[in-house]
Structures are given as structure tokens and as C-alpha cells.
Design a binder for these strands. Structure first.
Lengths: 238, 238
DNA sequence: GATTTGCGTCTCGCATTCCGAGACGGCAAT
DNA sequence: ATTGCCGTCTCGGAATGCGAGACGCAAATC
């Protein structure tokens, strides 16, 4: 099958990147593997280096550059948000509460996606908000499945205990009442990546007036199901 | 600063990739963000799509493509090997035994790098070899810091116990004698990635005749130091 | 130590490639 | 029904990129 895209420089570029997928290569090796003329391979490799898509190792050989990882991180983030957004909207509509997705970032959790209840009394967490790992049901979920040392380190200053995290693992979800903020209750469940690691937490949150002092009783099923659907969709997308 | 690389098509390509780093974009948005003429932006985007560096989302917008993740995975693997190889060589020379680096892959551990003792009685594990997770000091290290559920699942069929994994966590290294193979002893220590997660195990292995029935006594310090050096170098490289 | 070979890098004349104005069809907005 | 904007395509022309050849350097060979 013809591998030509109609833009010759990009066809040559793809060949160069492909050649470096197997490991570092000298210019001579690039020439051999890609079949390009030496000045051509040199010019394209140096131009890619200039844009940080390639770099050189300690022996002057070409390697894939740091920009590749930057773009891959951006691409991964996009994929998760694309998958999660319709699930959050469905969760909001099903439960009648605002829904969010949180990821851990050092000692904080970041709201990376949200579907807000449109009217009336509601909990608003704007996308981008950083919240602490010491309070809230999402913090419990992001911490509960860590290896024991990191779990215990994470409990310092937390408003929940190791015992409640054990309960989270057993039930598969966490609930909180007036932990992060007075008058707000929430329920969270894990989103798991490849290999089952917890990579995010999906939540609904709202006023205690509506959710009561046992918010899990109302909404745990819906939240766990939402987490399962996001997890399954991410596995399918890989 | 002039961002020109000397290959105009690659300059335009870098602009397109950069525009998509923030999220999906229609052709019109690409034109706006990059300043390219519409047919130019279209031709380059479609050519990148052809090489899987871009793709389209459900609404026809351009997004970063699957090839980005493939190249990033290859680049990450390269970096770890580049960092580990001199450390394995130094470990081999210091201990006089063969040294290896293992990564976990489902129910196996793969030897991804090795520095072999050149002469005499020696343990040879060729790069690429898949070994079981049920025996050997590297298996203990790759399992010891898992979250409890995955740790217990991993103990099924293993020739070591939860108690010995607790000892591994306490000491920071594992030793095995005649576990994977009669006559072979080994010592392993963790390699940790960003955030401290165990991502690989560094090992020395050799005959029981030389290493004795307490191989950790001889070589644990050197192996733990090697693991720390690889971990530190990976953190610096990011 | 001298010579040869192969490397990475650079130049520049030329031909091909890429550019972008304009056209087209489709669809959403008015 | 009309208008405006979108994505896609064509094609003449000019600018870009190509690659043969040259150069300097270092490693390999004799």
C-alpha cells in the first residue's frame, strides 16, 4: 500500500520518526533505514531537533525528543475528557446533582471536568479548581487504593481515617458530609486505567438538604456505574 | 526568537501540532491559530492524519493521533534503558555478578537490560526474556509495593509469602536462593518513577557457590544504591 | 606514523514540490 | 429563500527542498 500522504516532507518525516521508534540512530543509520539521501535525512532530522521532536543522545545519535512526551500527555488528557464528559452529563441528569471528575496532583485534587446542575441550590466546582487531599469523598477515593506507605502518608491532616478508607475499598465508593465545605455532601467512585490502577475519581455533590447525611444511600450506585463506564471506555480507546 | 528550522513544511507542522496541544480544533480554528492559509492547513492536517499523527474526533475536529502515544512509549523506554545501562555495568563490575533490569508485564517480568559477567560461572538472562512473577527476588520487589488487593492476588502460586514481602518493604530489597532456578541466587531492589511508584527492579544474580545462602548480606547495599541512582537519574531526565 | 575510509555538515543549481487564490458543494444561520 | 461560512479540491507559478558534490575531521587500517 502506498504510504504517500501528498506532502513529501511529511512522508520523509514519518519515516525518520519511525526509524527512531526502535532506539537511537546515527545519521548514517537513519540514511540506511529510511532510504533518504544523506543531506535530506540530515536536514529533516536537524529541523525536527529544532522543534524538539528529536534530540541527540550523549554520543550524538538522534533520539525521539521531549516534545513527543508533551504532545502525548496532552493527547491522553484529551481522550479522558472526551470519554468522561457525556458520562458526567448523564450522571448529572440521572441524579439531579452537579457531577465532577477529579485527578490527583501531588497534595491536591484538580477538577478536570464538570457537569453542573443548571438551576436552584447546587455545588459549583469550576474546571481547574484545586482542592485539598485532606477532605471530601473524592480525596478518599484517590487515596484508598494507594500502597500502604503512601496511603498512611496521605492520612496526615486528613479528616478521615484508615478505617474509613478500608470501608471505601470494601464498598467501592466514598461519601462525605460537610467535610470540604459546610452544607455540602458528596459521593465519589474510582475511575481505573489499564491494569486497574485508580487514575481519577468521579463525583456528585450538592447540598445536605437534598443529599441527606447518608448521600451514598441515594447515589452510590449511579456514581459507581459512571466510574465503571468511564473506565471501560478508556480501556476500549487504547 | 525566530522559530524557523529551515524546512518550511516542518515549521508549519509544528505549528499545527502545537495548536492541537490545547484540545480538538476544527480546520477553521487551525487556520486562525496557526495563521496558515486554509488549503495549506488542510493539506498538512490531512497528511498528518494519513500518518496517524493526527486523527478526527466524533465531530470531525482534528485531534492528536495515536502515533503520538506510540512514539512517546518508545521514547520513554529508550530513556530508561539509556539511564540504566551504565548503572548496570558499574553494578556488575562492583559485585562481580551479572546485573539485570526487570519490568513487570501482566503475570511476567521482562528483562529489559542486562550487563553480564564475562567469564566463569555466571547467570545469563538474555534481554527480552520473560520470567514468572511467582519466584525470584525481582518478582518480590515488583510485587511488594502494590496495593494490598493486587499484592494478595499476586501471591497466588508464589514461592514467597506476604510476610516476606513485608520484610522486602522494610529492608528495601529482596533476596532469593534457588527460587527461579536451582543453584542460582539473586538480590533485587526497586527503581522508582515520578511520585515514588515502583516501575522496575534492578538485580544481580549468580551461583549459590559465590553468593551463599544470604546473598543480601554481600550485595544488598550495592543493589539498593544502583536502584536509587537509576531512580534519581529518571527524575532528573523529566 | 601515514594513509584510507566513513562520518556529519554544508553549498548551491535545478527541478519538483508546495503554496494559496479561487471555485465548488453542503450546511447552518438568518 | 438567501446568505455566510465551512471543508475540500484544482492548478499555475514560484519558492522550497532536493541531492550531487565538496569539505573537514576522526576513526580505522596498514
Amino acid at each position: 500500500m502506498d504510504n504517500s500522504s501528498g506532502v513529501g516532507v511529511l512522508d520523509k518525516t514519518a519515516a525518520v520518526l519511525g526509524a527512531l521508534e526502535t532506539g537511537p540512530a546515527s545519521l548514517a543509520q537513519l540514511v540506511q533505514v529510511t532510504g533518504l539521501a544523506r543531506p535530506t535525512a540530515h536536514r529533516i532530522a536537524v529541523a525536527l531537533e529544532r522543534h524538539r521532536l528529536l534530540a541527540r543522545d550523549g554520543q550524538g545519535r538522534f533520539i525521539l525528543g521531549p516534545r513527543i512526551a508533551e504532545l502525548a500527555t496532552a493527547a491522553g488528557e484529551d481522550r479522558m475528557l472526551a470519554v468522561a464528559q457525556p458520562v458526567l452529563i448523564a450522571l448529572r441528569d440521572l441524579t439531579g446533582e452537579s457531577a465532577q471528575l477529579y485527578r490527583r496532583q501531588a497534595d491536591s485534587r484538580i477538577c478536570v471536568a464538570a457537569a453542573e446542575r443548571a438551576t436552584g441550590l447546587r455545588d459549583t466546582v469550576p474546571v481547574g479548581t484545586a482542592l485539598p487531599m485532606t477532605a471530601g469523598s473524592a480525596a478518599q477515593v484517590l487515596l484508598a487504593w494507594e500502597e500502604p506507605e503512601r496511603l498512611h502518608r496521605g492520612l496526615r491532616g486528613a479528616r478521615f481515617s484508615a478505617a474509613s478508607l478500608a470501608q471505601v475499598r470494601r464498598r467501592g465508593w466514598a461519601a462525605s458530609v460537610a467535610e470540604r465545605e459546610a452544607g455540602v455532601a458528596s459521593v465519589s467512585a474510582p475511575v481505573r486505567g489499564q491494569g486497574g490502577k485508580v487514575i481519577a475519581a468521579v463525583s456528585v455533590s450538592g447540598p445536605i438538604e437534598r443529599l441527606g447525611r447518608s448521600p451514598g444511600r441515594l447515589h452510590a450506585n449511579a456514581v459507581v456505574t459512571a466510574g465503571d463506564r468511564i473506565s471501560a471506555a478508556l480501556r476500549r480507546a487504547s
